[in-house]
Design a binder for these strands. Structure first.
Length: 153
DNA sequence: GCCAACGTTGGC
DNA sequence: GCCAACGTTGGC
């Protein structure tokens, strides 16, 4: 089992939105970056655990945990001209973009702030805190996962 | 709103 | 295949 971090802007879709979905489950669509796509398509497996990270908002940081309940499959929004994720260069034969389904697991009492993550020397190697990192889907190491859970309390 | 960092595009 | 221009991300 592996660990991941998914970024989202809570103004558009945050952990509370995940909680309010039927079955507390939602498909994680709209990822339009090849490296992130490769993780979604090739590596993220059923049962993997995911930190839900809130970006571009008042409380930047990890808001809680979700679990992968469906592994990589084609993101249908790429074929929908009405969608903001529409990709005219993609085709049904050769789809470019993939997604997974995640189910809510828990919400932290308080958002585990990016500030506190950066302040912890044990987390200095986390991909999240590397300079210029813009990936919206990234792996988290098992030891990092444990440290972060402990910090969240 | 600013701006650094990065990924993608497209002309050559 | 190079690389300048452009668009996007995301913290501050």
């Amino acid at each position: 089992m592996r660990y991941w971090l998914f970024k989202t802007e809570p103004d558009a879709f945050g952990i509370n939105d995940l909680i309010s979905r039927p079955e507390q489950t939602e498909h994680w669509d709209g990822v339009r970056n090849y490296q992130a796509r490769n993780f979604l398509r090739d590596q993220i497996a059923l049962g993997d655990q995911v930190f839900i990270y809130h970006s571009s908002c008042d409380e930047v940081g990890i808001a809680g945990v979700a679990e992968v309940v469906k592994a990589g499959y084609v993101d249908h929004t790429q074929f929908d001209p009405e969608s903001k994720y529409y990709d005219p260069k993609s085709s049904q034969d050769k789809p470019r973009w993939y997604m997974v389904d995640v189910k809510f697991v828990r919400k932290f009492n308080r958002v585990l702030s990016l500030q506190s993550i950066k302040a912890n020397p044990a987390l200095a190697d986390m991909q999240l805190v590397q300079k210029g990192n813009r990936l919206s889907v990234m792996p988290v190491e098992a030891d990092e996962w444990g440290i972060l859970l402990k910090m969240a309390g």
